[in-house]
């Protein structure tokens, strides 16, 4: 069937502001939006610019605003989007570099700010550190994050205040805060108790809805909030 793709285009070398352009492409129901973008780029307009790599939802390159929601272009099928018109725009709230490509530097800076790495300065045993399956399960959900920024850029709190550390960074802090092998939970909780930390979460759930990995992000954020409360209690 024919699908109309309406893409928000912007080339800083030519355009003063973003504008929508419409493309007609042939699409089957199992095609992903990424397939359609490729069809446009390869058969109609080579200047169309977007990031993509793995093409099956694990590298996190091609998050974008599709029909008003943040999705991975490689993981959302035409048939899941209903109608014959699909709108595509860059992730909201991040500076647009060109077409569907946004500047990710600030996003990664926030990720780095929560110390997203295991801290354990003790002497490592000869073999693995033991961890029960139960303790491993505690942070399983937040290990799935692929840093695609779909969550952070779907958050009205982040749109309002780009200083907010954002869901993705909190998810990655959560992954270590609740890892029994880690010794720096206190520091991370202190970082996230900042005015631009977890308190800016207003339980809006856009992040949870947007996550292509199905991470229960709002739950993770609230678990961190609760840990901060308990630490002070």
């Amino acid at each position: 069937m024919q699908v109309e793709l309406r893409i928000l285009r912007y080339d800083p070398e030519r355009d003063r502001r973003p504008h929508e352009e419409s493309y007609r492409v042939e699409a089957g129901p199992m095609d992903r939006v990424l397939d359609l973008l490729h069809r446009v780029k390869y058969e109609q307009d080579g200047t169309l610019t977007f990031r993509r790599s793995c093409g099956h939802g694990i590298c996190g390159s091609d998050a974008m605003l599709i029909n008003g929601r943040n999705r991975l272009a490689c993981k959302i099928r035409v048939d899941q989007l209903g109608g014959k018109r699909i709108t595509v725009a860059p992730l909201p709230g991040l500076p647009v570099m060109k077409d569907l490509v946004v500047d990710m530097e600030a996003f990664f800076a926030k990720f780095r700010s929560v110390q997203p790495f295991l801290v354990n300065e003790g002497v490592a045993p000869v073999r693995e550190r033991r961890q029960s399956a139960h303790d491993r399960e505690r942070f399983d959900d937040t290990t799935k994050c692929i840093l695609c920024a779909a969550c952070t850029s779907s958050c009205p709190s982040f749109w309002a205040q780009p200083a907010y550390v954002g869901p993705a960074a909190i998810v990655n802090a959560h992954r270590f805060i609740f890892d029994t092998r880690d010794d720096a939970a206190e520091e991370r909780l202190e970082i996230l108790a900042d005015k631009d930390g977890v308190w800016r979460c207003r339980t809006i759930f856009n992040c949870t809805d947007a996550c292509p990995r199905g991470i229960h992000i709002t739950q993770a954020i609230l678990e961190v909030s609760r840990a901060i409360v308990e630490r002070h209690a």
Binding site: R112, S113, Q115, E187, E190, A193, K195, G197, W199
Partner: peptide, 18 residues
Amino acid sequence: TRAGRARPQGSSFELAVW
């Protein structure tokens, strides 16, 4: 912090408000 970020100060005010 280990990530090279200045440690946030006076964070308990926001917690108390929350």
